[in-house]
Design a protein around this nucleic acid. Structure first.
Length: 882
RNA sequence: GCGGCUGUAGCUCAGAGGGAGAGCACCACCUUGACACGGUGGGGGUCACAGGUUCGAUUCCUGUCAGCCGCACCA
């Protein structure tokens, strides 16, 4: 083994070996119980970012863990077609290369281009997924526009239409003029911006005065159809039913009463523009008002705006205001701050627009989802996200699913040019379903990408065919792991679609993690240029370093900051593990045969490390079952670094470099066993390096770690007494080291140690650890006797159950020693006081649990013993001063 | 307006009803035969604030303050 692990040299080979071994492939015919997950399908056009890397690390930990625990694991990979993003990208390319727009080449040719593009670049992201080491089943990879998945989309659309849960209608939708398509409500991001509130006079027709309305979008006034006031607003009650004359156009519109009006806001008078505002739209329906439109889908004003026709609405605003002002209609303008909707993809301001679109009627789908969740049939991790989920579903509005794009699942609806009927069906229509006319044309639009993603957990397993072995065995899936920012986009939609079409929750548990931020806590974004390319990290440090860094940074549902310092910390751990393994390997012969561990023949240190190993295993398992990834990783880190490397390996060196063959073999067996189990437990987190180390272990015969079993917890190894015993040995070692350091006694200078135990029992304890104390304190001799008479020129240490003397003839500064002992004395006195305070409270004795009281008593005895040792020593020092 | 998260060492963050933790940074010492991507030792925090529950609160509850996020409304 080299001095350092070289991830670049081995990761690709190891991944290829894993793939070849078939370990990642699920087997629906195997007798083992299923553990299944579907990957949140990344954008086929995309590149891997740190968020993916994190998300995938967590899933891979689960996949590999459950595989090692004997489950038949299916982790299904794939990508989605990302309608707008992909289309935009190919359009740009087309424009750059040929100077053509998609309209220049036509729909069929354009869609062909996108497929070409997808075939060429769509594998980039799946290649990157391999670099992360994901143990996905590539034989089951899916794409949302695959034949089967497209069939699922059509089936769902047709069935929902037949059930009346999908309808086409004229509604206010969010229109992004840059993307040229409608968006759903959640694709709109509201951003607080400074704006102006324009107060405009609308004269009464009867000449008796005027009303003043307030608006932020004065350019829409051309499409006003009414003015509304609150029914109980005394200021305006006499005006209800009267008519006002719209400035410039002279059109007459009514004043009406509607409770939606906020009397406090603006003037309390609202202009009603049903075609350009969702609230006004509702008011319009209630009062049967016409729906006049003055801005088209191109964002331009139309002929209703008279001389402004043809101009961009937003740009024309100022001119409209100027004209109103000139003609005396503008009363005044005030500054306000209001939330303006922006396209979440391209940040263009979205226009509320009246438009004929397809919608999913949400009520009937949301209700069952809410019922199932209330019955506890979906576990959220962390639980608090359930509230977010429920709140959204309780208030959800109908989902606009049609997109004015060419790339995606085309809506299976045909319109008849003769009878005007709509035909919705699975197969491509050849004639009108109502009048049999062949003069029909298909709807031009495609479906929202999330419509197909919503079906992902079952469409990928063969649905609508529910008899496939995969669907039978792996649906519903076990766990879904995703970031909390797509609870609405994806999780909620999978839930209600899953319930509607499979009658089951698509997953039993949904694990939500946070978002990656930069080292200053900012979201990573292209515009800030603070993004980090995970592939670069992998190339520089290896996938394991990245994965371990992300895993240890995980705390449930919370964001994490990314920094190179953390990466280095993680890299250092890889190096530590590598070298610990290297040490073990160097001390085993090539023909080494693992022996069974004979508990009775083990030394205290052996028992202790096996105890710690079993405890670490227990904790890691519990934490992984609870999806506490960060804690699980930390438990293993601490075990590996602190217990194994810092203590056990150092202690093992005594036997390894000693005379006794028996001792040496004993320690070799333990080292080998611990390392092997450690590699197995770390494998889900850092698969490459553990696999690589595994290959160096003797007697492996080409067996892969990835296919091995998670180690059994050996109950017989759990030994708390041994743990406390080692604890006191470690304390003794640390105390002596502390003194060495304080007194600048270099390691090269050997010292003697005299241990004076306070009891026979303590003497036996220290006997078991005395070689370790001696070696780890660089002591040339050690005596452990109850009747030791301390030399006068010595430093005295009070440890649990004993006093330790370090004879240092000629090096003792009595004043300094007295000072140190005084400090010690105060420390133990304080501890005793703290405990006595508890005991002096009668309620403590009466109400605290017996174990707690008992534990405090034992502590007090220990402190008391130490205190008297220190006091005695103080007296001795004082006597010497004379 | 509704809901949520966060506030612990200089920084990043764990944690748990009964003696304040880690990593990094810092200081000192150490080329000890796995590792300087290392070892040993050390300094450093009234666990945001105020109440309450409890024998006992940094941990549970309520409120306040500060930072952040989501949802709704905003003519």
């Amino acid at each position: 083994m080299n001095k350092h692990f070289q991830p670049q040299e081995v990761e690709r080979e190891i991944y290829a070996e894993w793939e070849k071994s078939g370990t990642f492939q699920a087997d629906s015919s195997s007798p083992y119980p299923a553990f299944s997950m579907v990957i949140p399908p990344p954008n086929v056009t995309g590149v891997l970012h740190l968020g993916h890397a994190w998300n995938h690390t967590l899933q891979d930990i689960l996949a590999r863990y459950h595989r090692m625990r004997g489950k038949d694991v299916l982790w299904l990979p794939g990508t989605d077609h990302a309608g707008i993003a992909t289309q935009t990208r190919v359009e740009k390319m087309l424009m750059q290369e040929n100077g053509q727009s998609r309209h220049d080449i036509g729909r069929t040719a354009f869609v062909e281009k996108v497929w070409e593009w997808k075939d060429k670049y769509g594998s980039a992201i799946t290649e990157q997924i391999r670099r992360l080491g994901d143990s996905v089943d590539w034989s089951r990879e899916r794409f949302t526009m695959d034949e089967g998945l497209s069939q699922a989309v059509r089936t769902v659309f047709v069935e929902l239409y037949q059930k009346g849960l999908i309808y086409r209608g004229n509604r206010i939708i969010n229109w992004c003029s840059r993307c040229g398509t409608a968006l759903s409500d959640i694709e709109v991001e509201h951003i607080e911006l400074p704006g102006k509130l324009y107060h405009i006079r609308y004269p009464l027709k009867d000449g008796s005065g005027e009303v003043v309305i307030a608006t932020t979008r004065p350019e829409t006034f051309f499409a006003d159809v009414a003015v509304a006031v609150h029914p109980n607003d005394e200021r305006y009650s006499s005006l209800i039913g009267k008519t006002v004359i719209l400035p410039l156009s002279g059109r007459e519109i009514p004043i009406l009463a509607d409770p939606i009006v906020d009397r406090e806001y603006g003037t309390g008078c609202v202009k009603i523009t049903p075609a350009h505002d969702p609230n006004d739209f509702e008011v319009g329906l209630r009062h049967q008002l016409p729906q006049l439109q003055c801005i088209g889908s191109d964002g331009k004003l139309n002929e209703l705006a008279m001389e402004f026709a043809g101009r961009n609405a937003l740009e024309a605003r100022q001119d409209v205001v100027d004209v109103l002002r000139k003609q005396g209609y503008l009363l005044h303008v005030t500054d306000i701050v209001h939330a303006v909707g922006h396209c979440s993809r391209c940040s263009t301001v979205v226009d509320p627009l009246l438009s004929l679109q397809w919608f999913v009627r949400m009520q009937n789908l949301a209700d069952p989802a809410l019922q199932f969740v209330h019955r506890g049939e979906l576990q959220f991790v962390p639980a608090r996200f359930e509230k977010v989920f429920v709140h959204w579903l309780e208030n959800v509005k109908d989902w606009c699913i049609s997109r004015q794009l060419w790339w995606g699942h085309r809506i299976p609806a045909w319109y008849c040019d003769d009878c005007g009927g709509t035909t919705v069906q699975l197969e491509d229509a050849t004639c009108c379903g109502h009048c049999k006319s062949t003069h029909i044309h298909q709807d031009e639009d495609v479906l929202d990408t999330w419509f197909s993603s919503a079906l992902w957990p079952f469409s990928t397993l063969g649905w609508p065919d529910t008899d496939t072995p995969d669907y039978q065995k792996y649906y519903p899936t076990s766990v879904l792991v995703t970031a909390y920012d797509i609870i609405f986009f994806w999780v909620a939609r999978m839930v209600f679609m899953g319930l509607e079409f499979t009658g089951q929750m698509p997953f039993q548990t949904v694990v939500l993690h946070g978002l990656i931020r930069d080292s200053e806590g900012r979201k990573m974004s292209k515009s800030l240029g603070n993004g980090v390319d995970p592939i670069e990290i992998i190339e520089q440090y290896g996938a394991d370093t990245l994965r371990f860094c992300l895993a240890t940074g995980t705390s449930p549902g919370n964001d994490q900051r990314f920094s190179m310092e953390k990466i280095e910390g993680s890299r250092n751990f890889m190096n530590k593990l590598w070298n610990a393994a290297r040490f073990v390997r160097m001390n085993l012969s090539d023909s080494f045969q693992a022996r069974t561990i004979e508990w009775d023949k083990l030394d205290i240190a052996d028992r202790w490390i096996l105890h710690r190993l079993a405890k670490a295993n227990k904790s890691a398992q519990r934490l992984l079952e609870e999806f506490e990834f960060g804690e699980a990783a930390r438990v293993l880190y601490d075990f590996a670094w602190d217990d194994f490397c810092d203590w056990y390996i150092e202690m093992a060196k005594i036997s390894l470099y000693g005379e006794s063959i028996v001792d040496k073999e004993r320690v070799q067996t333990v080292l080998y066993e611990v390392l092997q189990q450690l590699l197995q437990m770390l494998h889900p987190f850092i698969p490459f390096i553990t696999e690589e180390i595994w290959s160096y272990l003797p007697q492996r015969n080409g067996q892969l770690l990835v296919a091995s079993d998670w180690p059994q917890i050996q109950q017989a190894w759990i030994d708390d007494t041994c743990d406390t015993l080692m604890g006191s040995i470690q304390e003794a070692i640390r105390s002596v080291r502390n003194i060495r350091s304080e007194r600048n006694i270099p390691p090269s200078r050997e010292i003697s140690l005299l241990i004076r135990p306070l009891s026979v029992e303590a003497m036996e304890r220290f006997q078991q650890g005395q070689y370790y104390i001696q070696k780890l304190c660089h002591a040339s001799q050690l005596e452990n006797k109850m009747d030791i008479e301390p030399p006068s020129q010595a430093i005295a240490l009070a440890v649990s159950g004993a006093e330790i003397f370090i004879p240092l003839a000629g090096l003792i500064d009595l004043a300094a020693e007295k000072n140190r002992l005084e400090q010690e004395k105060r420390r133990w006195q304080q501890e005793i006081e703290r405990i006595d305070k508890k005991f002096s409270n009668p309620n403590f004795l009466a109400r605290a649990p017996q174990e707690v009281v008992e534990a405090e008593k034992i502590k007090r005895e220990d402190y008391e013993a130490r205190l008297s040792a220190v006091e005695e020593r103080l007296r001795a020092v004082a006597a010497m001063e004379q």
